[in-house]
Design a protein around this nucleic acid. Structure first.
Length: 528
RNA sequence: GGCCCUGUCGUCUAGCGGUUAGGACACAGCCCUUUCAAGGCUGCGACACGGGUUCGAUUCCCGUCAGGGUCACCA
């Protein structure tokens, strides 16, 4: 039998990092074993415009390269894949349980039940709900329900254990006497999540239910559904949750802002607090205004959209999330999706919750960027340059050549696509913007003006005007003058680019070409 | 509160009775480079605590403590 896993998001309008990790494990597991990964949409309780709220989730998965074999937009033989379109099947299953003596109508109102619950709490006793008709005959229950439909409850068997065989947690046991009879159908006929989920898993022939640890407690109830329905039990894997980052030692937080808590589950709502001044500055630097940031409530470090907007490589995010709670061995950190698919196993998923570390994610994103062919780096960078109005898309031939050389010269300095804005602007503007600090600290240093004039002469004699030739010429010049060549680098860099940071200085000169370099040195001399 | 789950450097993790407790991120220093990255080297830094079992416990058992989850007509 083929392996079938699933991920069941609610259409919330954003794709949460923790959810992606769960989906990723499901996907990797299915791919590893040659099975199918299904996307099911849990939309029974949503008032919102579903397609609008669903789209960001599908976009996110597509961007990450997590393809679903069945589900929205791709369909599949077990459809529909929206719970809102499967309501009849839940009712039918509930009727089957009713007629099989596994369910009973419960006319107790919510208020009455709340009162019982409170009384139990006051008595410091667990509240285990058992409805009055629990002991009525099956025929009587069916008759009552037909006559006067109401809330339908599952009859939890007594005096035994509910056992969950979990691939990650091992065998987990709960006494059924501690499980209250759960509502499976509301009076209006709509199902509850815990029940609908099982009916779908049966209908979709899910073989492995891999989901967050917080569902483990639900599972004791759910396995009873599977039993009562006589359906084959899937295997379970309850993966530990993803927690908030640990606060940086010595980090300061604005008054009223709670620091992150590494013991707390990473949630989108709470993560809004991590749109710190630093994060905001990061977004500002790539062209987002404060108003735009405020308008995009999914633009925070708990969502996939955030990393996409900042130009993270999806491969880096996949690698990071895959390593969060799972490891291949004692040293492997860098992995391609292929590596992960070839090696993933639930046995090697950790037992304990892991806290999300944005810095390690950043590092891994950079490691993956190193591997990316230059043409693809350029493709990824262009949107950021367009947004910054430094280029227009499509690029003209001259800009395209220039950009290629800039990205090449940047080398490993490019970790995120948005990093292009840290280095490329001086190369794409007609004239250098001389940074006052650079002018002050470098150009105006005594003697540098004279040196620049001499270097200009040396450079003007270079033929061809490439990295090796200019470098040799400058070193020869320094040797002839009896000075060290190193100190000439910064004056040259600032003269030509206006800033004191950039790729190697001789690469920089080569990108501009002789005439432009000489012209820019003249401009620089005027600054002094 | 009941029940369930979890506890190795700040963080992610390796370990599955005998290891100088390994790797990675971060941090610090040095080298390279008078930029910034990358790279190389070095350092800092952990088995929550207390009992057992054992010749020997990070590892197995029990307890304590701590954290989390769940006890819904939410998903």
């Amino acid at each position: 039998m083929s392996i079938r896993t699933r991920f069941a998001p609610s259409p919330t309008g954003y794709l949460h990092i923790g959810g992606v990790r769960t989906a990723l494990f499901n996907w990797l597991f299915a791919r590893r074993l040659g099975g199918q990964f299904i996307l099911r949409i849990d939309d029974t309780d949503t008032e919102r415009n579903r397609s609008e709220a669903l789209q960001p989730i599908l976009d996110g998965f597509r961007w990450l390269g997590i393809q679903w074999d069945e589900g929205p937009e791709v369909g599949g033989p077990y459809g529909p894949y929206f719970q809102s379109q499967r309501l009849e099947s839940y009712k039918a299953a509930a009727m089957k349980l009713l007629e099989g003596g596994h369910a009973y109508p419960d006319y107790m109102t919510k208020e009455e039940q709340d009162a019982e619950r409170k009384a139990a709490e006051a008595a410091k006793k667990p509240y285990i709900h058992r409805g009055p008709h629990r002991e009525s005959s099956t025929a009587e229950c069916v008759r009552l329900y037909r006559e006067k439909p109401t809330t339908l409850r599952f009859k939890v068997p007594t005096r035994r254990d509910s056992i969950v065989e979990d691939l990650i947690c091992g065998q987990c046991v709960q006494k059924t006497d501690l499980i209250g009879d759960p509502v499976i159908l509301r009076a209006n006929g709509s199902p509850l999540y815990n029940f609908a989920s099982v009916i779908d898993d049966i209908a979709f022939e899910i073989t492995h239910v891999v989901r967050a640890r917080e569902h483990l407690a639900n599972t004791y109830t759910q396995v009873l559904f599977w039993e009562a329905l006589g359906a084959p039990m899937p295997k379970f894997g309850h993966i530990p949750v993803v927690n908030e980052p640990a606060p940086k030692p010595g980090a300061k937080y604005a008054p009223g802002v709670k620091p992150p808590n590494k013991n707390k589950k990473l949630s989108k709502r709470d993560m809004a607090k991590f749109v710190t001044p630093e994060i905001k500055a990061q977004l500002n630097a790539i062209g987002w205004t404060d108003e735009q940031i405020a308008a995009r409530d999914d633009l925070n470090p708990a969502t996939v959209a955030f990393y996409r907007e900042l130009g993270y490589l999806p491969e880096g995010l996949i690698n990071y999330l895959g390593r969060l709670g799972w490891s291949l061995d004692d040293k492997t950190e860098f992995m391609t999706v292929k590596d992960m698919i070839a090696n993933f196993s639930l046995e090697r998923v950790t037992d304990s919750a892991a806290s999300f570390d944005p810095e390690k994610l950043y590092w891994l994103a950079g490691e993956h960027m190193k591997q990316l062919p230059i043409e693809q780096k350029i493709v990824g960078c262009v949107p950021f340059l367009v947004k910054a109005k430094l280029v227009t898309d499509p690029l003209d031939a001259a800009t395209s050549t220039r950009l290629h050389r800039v990205v090449e010269a940047m080398g490993d300095r490019l970790k995120l696509f948005s990093d292009i804005l840290l280095y490329a602007p001086p190369f794409l503007k007609a004239d250098p913007d001389y940074h006052p600090e650079a002018v002050e600290n470098v150009l105006k240093k005594p003697g540098n003006a004279e040196l620049l004039r001499e270097v200009a002469k040396v450079l003007s004699a270079c033929e061809p005007f490439d990295t090796a030739t200019t470098e040799k010429a400058v070193i020869d010049f320094a040797n002839a003058r009896g000075i060290k060549p190193g100190p000439l680098n910064q004056p040259m860099r600032v003269a030509v680019t206006g800033v004191s940071r950039g790729p190697g200085v001789f690469e920089t000169l080569a990108i501009f070409g002789k005439d432009e370099v000489l012209r820019r040195i003249e401009l620089a001399l005027v600054q002094i």
